[in-house]
Amino acid sequence: MIDIVMMTGTGVLLGLAIGLVVRYFGVPVNPLVESLNELMPGANCGGCGLAGCSDYANAMATGRAKPGLCPVMSAEAVAKCCELLGVESDTTEPKIAVVCCSGDDDHAAKQAFYNGVNDCLNAMLVAGGSKGCTYGCLGLGSCARACPFGAIEMLPNHLAKIHADLCTGCGKCYMACPRNVIKLVPRSAAKVHVYCNSPKKAPIKRTVCKAACIGCRKCAKTAGEGQIIMNGYLASINYDNPPAEGIVEVCPTKCLRKAD
């Protein structure tokens, strides 16, 4: 009986003590930061350029950062942030990541067997990786491990695939890719992409990858003015003025494809 009384008493006393400490020594939290924090996605991806969501909320409250830097937040959330901060809303176009390579094991030639740490940067530092093409996806999944949203799947034949519904365009994969195969493009314009990243001449590319862009210019000629730009021997989409989806029909190597 005494035990129960003692335990209960201790509990009550400790609870009281905690309450008092919070009451008198608690650090006041800026209510603005709290309400901003609630609007944050909470993924702590760092896409805004700050250490995480609460850091960004703090930075916005103190005027160190502008709203709209977060690639993940919805437009409404950004608008609410602006309202709370009393600034003009300034939304940025949401982005999406694209792996500009079709060179999986079936298409791209493997020059050698890579024996080492399972990481793209490590493979890059060893003879430039095992794929014959020195511009394509290395297929070891550094981007997939870097993605905070689990939006990147490594296909069994060594090519990264981005799931558009999960991708928030935070840019982590873009930073992780040592080959710069991943590009960030405006989400609204992401209808068709050139899935090739090699600026080399067609004969060189063809020897190492069957799915490479051969620089035939068919797409550039068929599409409207300035919709597809030839970048050396590589076609590239002008995402400010994207071509219609039908353009994919003309590509002989099928490296110009609809977004998948």
Binding site: G116, V117, D119, L121, N122, L125, V126
Partner: peptide, 13 residues
């Protein structure tokens, strides 16, 4: 263990 490879990576980063 590929110790040198790890070092190279850290240096590259």
């Amino acid at each position: 263990r590929p110790l040198v490879q790890h070092m190279r990576r850290a240096k590259a980063v």
